[in-house]
């Protein structure tokens, strides 16, 4: 089997603010194989977006990567220079942002914004760049791309803008796309179309995807693997069907329990009590302890992430394994 597209090892990205050091990403590891989709799941503030920005090298001060490796096709991006990163960005690694209303520059035409991306990485003529832009727009399902190239972003709907953003990400057929909640701001039907589109494109081009979201139902249909983040750490990592069917970490179980489903009609939705703790003042021990129904003495110590079942990694002293279930 070929080397994975991306291997993140013990990544730490901290923000050095006046109020103290915020450990937005603290010891995060995961792997994305070629052509596979990793769902990065967590609540707001769990560090999933910062993880994405770390991979593409766009963590802005006061934040910086303080430790770990980001191996992209065997090359450590945490040590790459800005010029090397610029070469990769938009070319081999692309990113799609959350809010399509904000990602396109309002005062530049679509063609300008697409052609500049082509020309940033390929020595081709302006005309060839335009053709590439037009073809890619057609590929993501934008009708009459020739005309649309001459439009400004405000002349597009939200869903169309996200398609344009996706087209820009696809211009150079990247090996990896970091998608930061790209469907959150869209309505459900458009979301469905975009998901199907992206899945098809990833399969045909062999592109790997990191799909950042808080929506488990999106991950269920799209991802191959899933990494659940809580307070800057991965608390559970495994194949998507395993994790969703039989969560091991109480937090994952809580997240799944809080998704509305047809089987529980009429019942109040379960929710995880409490809030995500402030990353500035994390309590010692397991960060989820104060909200965890299974918390015990042992949880006062720092849990490590361990492979407790084949292919199932979890950061918990009291995981929801069969035996633990019986004991409880």
């Amino acid at each position: 089997m070929a080397a994975p597209t991306l291997e993140v090892r013990n990544l730490r990205t901290h923000f050095f603010t006046r109020a103290g050091v915020v450990r937005a990403v603290d010891d995060v590891s995961f792997t994305v194989e070629r052509g596979k989709v990793l769902g990065l799941v967590g609540e707001s503030g769990s560090g999933k977006t910062v993880t994405g920005f770390s991979v593409i090298g766009l963590v802005d001060p006061p934040g910086r990567i303080v430790g770990g490796q980001i191996l992209f096709q065997g090359r450590d991006l945490a040590k790459a220079t800005e010029a090397e990163m610029r070469d990769l960005r938009g070319n081999r690694i692309a990113m799609i942002f959350q809010d399509p209303m904000m990602t396109l520059n309002p005062v530049l035409r679509i063609d300008t914004q697409m052609i500049e991306t082509v020309l940033a990485h390929k020595k081709v003529s302006h005309e060839q760049a335009r053709q590439r832009a037009r073809d890619t727009l057609g590929m993501v399902g934008i009708p009459s791309p020739d005309e649309r190239l001459k439009s400004y972003p405000h002349q597009f709907s939200g869903g169309m803008r996200q398609r344009v953003a996706i087209a820009i990400a696809l211009l150079h057929e990247p090996d990896l796309i970091v998608a930061d909640e790209p469907t959150t701001a869209l309505d459900v039907t458009i979301q469905g179309q975009i998901l199907a589109e992206v899945q098809k494109l990833a399969q045909t081009t062999g592109t790997s995807l990191i799909w950042i979201t808080h929506d488990l139902s999106v991950v269920a249909g799209l991802a191959d693997d899933i990494a659940v983040m809580y307070a800057g750490r991965v608390v559970e990592h495994g194949a998507v069907s395993d994790v969703l069917d039989r969560p091991l970490h109480p937090y994952t179980a809580g997240l799944i329990g809080s998704v509305p489903s047809r089987n529980k009609r009429g019942e109040p939705l379960r929710q995880i009590p409490g809030m995500t703790p402030s990353l500035l003042s994390l309590p010692p021990g397991c960060a989820f302890r104060s909200r965890c129904p299974r918390a015990a003495e042992a949880c006062l110590a720092e849990p490590e992430i361990n492979e407790i079942l084949p292919g199932r990694e979890v950061r918990c002293f009291r995981p929801l394994t069969e035996t633990a279930e019986q004991a409880a």
Binding site: L58, R86, N91, A94, F97, M102, T103, N105, E116, H121
Partner: peptide, 26 residues
């Protein structure tokens, strides 16, 4: 701080292009 500036950087544009085209015109 706008997303479109970050997106422009994520496209791999040079710093001068981001500053003088994407930021300046706005």
């Amino acid at each position: 701080l706008m997303d479109y500036v970050k997106f422009a950087r994520a496209k791999g544009l040079s710093a001068s292009r981001v500053t003088f085209v994407h930021v300046f015109k706005n």
